[in-house]
Design a protein around this nucleic acid. Structure first.
Length: 754
DNA sequence: TCCTCACGGGG
DNA sequence: GTGTACGTGAGGA
């Protein structure tokens, strides 16, 4: 018998039996173990049908044990079920599938739970867990235990060996000539032709360095698929980037799927066994929270590292809820795998009609404090115990939320709040550590990435609650949360008003307040005063709340179509420290050409640079002169084509467009030259004069700068400038003259705002 | 004026 | 094989 201490690196079903575990030992070895781990799933239904199913399974050659038992359904309580325990995890999917095909009328549970999630629920062992195991001479695990927990704030992680491989250019648009390999030693450049040489070099590097993680760019969509195709053509069987030579890498096809109200493109995937492969170009969220965030998510969700790197956080939330259900002995219903997330982006961008939206007072306001609830929806779910199985259960009707016409059972913590509680606590604790640290400290960035990884799990969980296809979703629970949120915001408004503040605006989880005009409205409100208000609100609502900041001034914008109507989410302002915050204006949009976003930002920076005691309108001459400079550069052809690029994410194939929008015309241009864009991918173009009015970026022919549609870009610039300058009473047409006239007008017709 | 299409957060 | 918010704004017919 051997005792081994180390970290759990990888876990999957073995080909012949049990689970395969890869452990990075404390002494630095990478060791493969086998662990017997039967997988149980359940079927419920009429007794005679269950008896037929039992007989069917007895005649099926897959090794398993059958038993009758009683398990808890989240909604309908105890159920008599047939338990099917498949000895070899690799055979469980097929066993279930055969049964399901033969008995589609039965209700199935625990059929599609990821292996790592089952393992975490059964043994507290999650990806990257530190563990101690005892194995026999054949490396079969006899006993294993965790030495740390997903909720440890600063766990000790294994030292990972990382091999980086990336081509010199984007293979989608160009033909790479070499790849750079960065491993044990410094970078080396390997020519792509001949592929045989490239394959041998990569193989040699993998063998020599034995990396735990191969970090690539376009490894999913280009490098590995191409290498495999090459090897197949040449009849080469010895190239295997896995650490586990018993298995071939797992390839998944590219797809476009609908989620959060838009089409997302996900390239093909190339997963390894015994080590990880992450393609930074295909791991959508990696840019947001980086490798530390991915590892953090793997630890808390129990999903494999390679999966969390490529999936959206919705999959992580589902995994956490499944794990919680397994731990509590609650059945996880089988649903055919649909879109992985809630269908709307609403909770993400605060546009949910369920959340309270207030009409702001249009115009510029001085000395305004913005107060935000922290992770408001998750906090509400925990605070009010909102869960699919608690809403509408027990308790009396006039319970906690006046607006809510149904009770929420408070006798036991629900599955969803129980899942969220440690997540919220951990994120807050990490943020607390960050607050006590110098941002230049090398430990700061990883903390931030981990906190961001957790934040995303919290953000999507609310959407899941209302998603009818989610395992633990129920629309009533979703409504309960939004009802609670409105109640909380209204309570906050009352509290603020009682404390002598005027509430200028409220938006889902934030409110903007200033002193009542009777109370020396122009005297800056102090942080200490607002903190007092915060404490009162936190006390009355029971929710965590934070001061986003105190604005020198903030401007709420009217609708572009009717300047008397305010829109709730278009505003900008300058905080006391000079920081700019903007929402919903041109520079926030991904489809604004970079030079326009930059010009708008510059205008705001000029405003921010103004001494505090001067009125904002004093910045006008400098802003106008700056914008005139931008127009001059545009006319003079001094702007690089890249800064003129408009980026759109297209929702359909070129011939599926009903309207010849600029993006559609750019797509067609690309198609003519044999360049393909799948729905969900980006297309970039420049407005040009004449037909077709666009130049699609990435076209092989050279871009002619003389073709740029200067009038059109001027219009876009004027529009963006007007968004800011309308506050100073400058009409769009006046602005056009100010910016476009060839002679400089010395007198600026300015209306001062009070 | 109507229709189509795309965007949106936070740190 | 997946499902289509909602409000706003832009561009084209």
């Amino acid at each position: 018998m051997n005792e081994v201490r180390g970290w759990l690196l990888d876990l999957y079903a073995g080909e012949e039996q049990g689970l395969v575990l890869w452990i990075i030992t404390e002494s630095g070895e990478r060791k493969r173990f086998l662990h017997d781990f039967p997988i149980t799933f359940y079927a419920a239904g009429p007794p005679d049908l269950l008896r037929q199913a039992w007989r069917f399974l007895q005649n099926d050659p897959i090794q398993k044990t059958l038993s009758g038992s009683e398990q808890l359904d989240l909604f309908s309580g105890p159920q008599k079920v047939l338990a099917v325990s498949v000895t070899n995890p690799a055979e469980q999917p097929r066993c279930f599938h055969d049964l399901w095909r033969r008995f589609p009328a039965l209700i199935y549970y625990n059929t599609d739970i990821p292996l790592t999630v089952r393992y975490a629920a059964a043994l507290d062992l999650f990806p990257l867990a530190r563990c101690r195991l005892i194995a026999d001479e054949a490396d079969h695990v006899q006993a294993i235990e965790a030495l740390d927990s997903p909720w440890d704030l600063n766990p000790q992680l294994p030292p990972l060996r990382i091999l980086r491989i990336e081509p010199n250019v984007d293979p989608q648009h160009d033909s790479p000539r070499f790849v750079t390999i960065h491993g044990a030693r410094g970078p080396m450049r390997i020519p792509i032709e001949p592929w045989r040489g490239l394959m041998l070099t990569i193989r040699a590097n993998i063998n020599r360095y034995d990396p735990d993680l191969i970090l690539t760019r376009w490894g999913d969509t280009w490098l590995f698929p191409r290498l495999m195709v090459f090897c197949k053509q040449q009849g080469i069987t010895y190239f295997n980037p896995n650490r586990d030579s018993h298995k071939r890498p797992l390839q998944r096809k590219e797809n476009s799927y609908f989620t959060y109200g838009q089409i997302v493109y996900r390239g093909s995937q190339f997963h390894l066994y015994g080590r990880w492969h992450i393609d930074q170009q295909n791991a959508v969220m990696v840019g947001d929270y980086g490798l530390p965030g991915v590892l953090e998510q793997a630890r808390v969700t129990g999903l494999p590292v390679q999966e969390v790197a490529r999936k959206s956080p919705g999959a992580g939330v589902t995994a956490m809820q499944m794990q919680m259900a397994l731990r509590r002995g609650i059945l996880v219903p089988h649903t055919k795998q649909q879109a992985e997330e809630f269908k709307t982006l609403s909770e993400l961008i605060h546009a949910d009609r369920g959340g309270l939206v207030y009409q702001p007072l249009i115009g510029l306001h001085r000395h305004v404090a913005e107060i935000d609830f922290i992770s408001m929806y998750p906090s509400l779910m925990v605070h009010y115990n909102v869960s699919p199985e608690t809403v509408g259960q027990g308790g009396d009707l006039d319970s906690i939320i006046p607006e809510l016409d149904r009770p929420i059972d408070q006798s036991r913590e629900g599955v969803v709040p129980a899942t969220l509680r440690p997540l919220i606590a951990k994120r807050l604790a990490l943020k607390q550590q960050m607050a006590d640290m110098d941002p230049r400290d090398c430990r700061y960035q990883p903390l931030k990435a981990r906190a961001a990884g957790l934040k995303w799990l919290l953000v999507v969980c609310f959407g899941y609650l209302g998603y009818k296809n989610a395992r633990f979703g129920r629309i009533e629970a979703h409504e309960a949360v939004t009802a609670c949120s409105r109640d909380v915001l209204l309570t906050s408004k009352e509290t603020a008003e009682e404390a002598g503040y005027q509430v200028l605006h409220m938006y889902v989880d934030a409110l903007w307040v200033k002193r009542q005009s009777s109370q020396a409205a122009d005297k800056p409100v102090t942080e200490a005063e607002v903190r007092q208000l915060l404490d009162t609100i936190a006390e009355r609502t029971g929710l965590p709340i934070a001061l986003e900041g105190i604005y020198r001034w903030v401007a709420f914008l009217p609708s572009c179509l009717d300047d008397r109507i305010p829109v709730p989410n278009r505003y900008f302002g300058i905080f006391a420290d000079g920081t700019i915050k903007t929402r919903g204006i041109e520079l926030n949009r991904g489809d604004t050409p970079p030079f326009i976003a930059a010009a708008q930002r510059e205008a705001l920076q000029i405003l921010a640079a103004l001494p505090e005691d001067r009125p904002p309108a004093d910045a006008l001459p400098e802003i106008i002169s700056h914008l005139r400079g931008v127009i001059a550069a545009l006319r003079g052809g001094q702007l690089s084509p890249e800064t003129l690029l408009i980026t759109h994410r297209v929702s359909r194939l070129p011939d599926e467009f009903r309207a010849a929008s600029p993006a559609a015309r750019a797509l067609r241009q690309l198609a003519v030259h044999g360049y393909e864009r799948r729905p969900g991918q980006r297309v970039q173009f420049i407005y040009t004069r004449g037909n077709p009015g666009v130049y699609a970026w990435d076209l092989p022919e050279v871009f002619n700068p003389a073709a740029v549609d200067i009038a059109r870009y001027s219009d876009l610039l004027i529009r963006a400038a007007h968004t800011i300058l309308q506050l100073f009473g400058i009409e769009k047409e006046k602005l056009r003259t100010l910016l476009l006239s060839r002679t400089i007008q010395l007198q600026l017709p300015l209306t001062r705002t009070s």
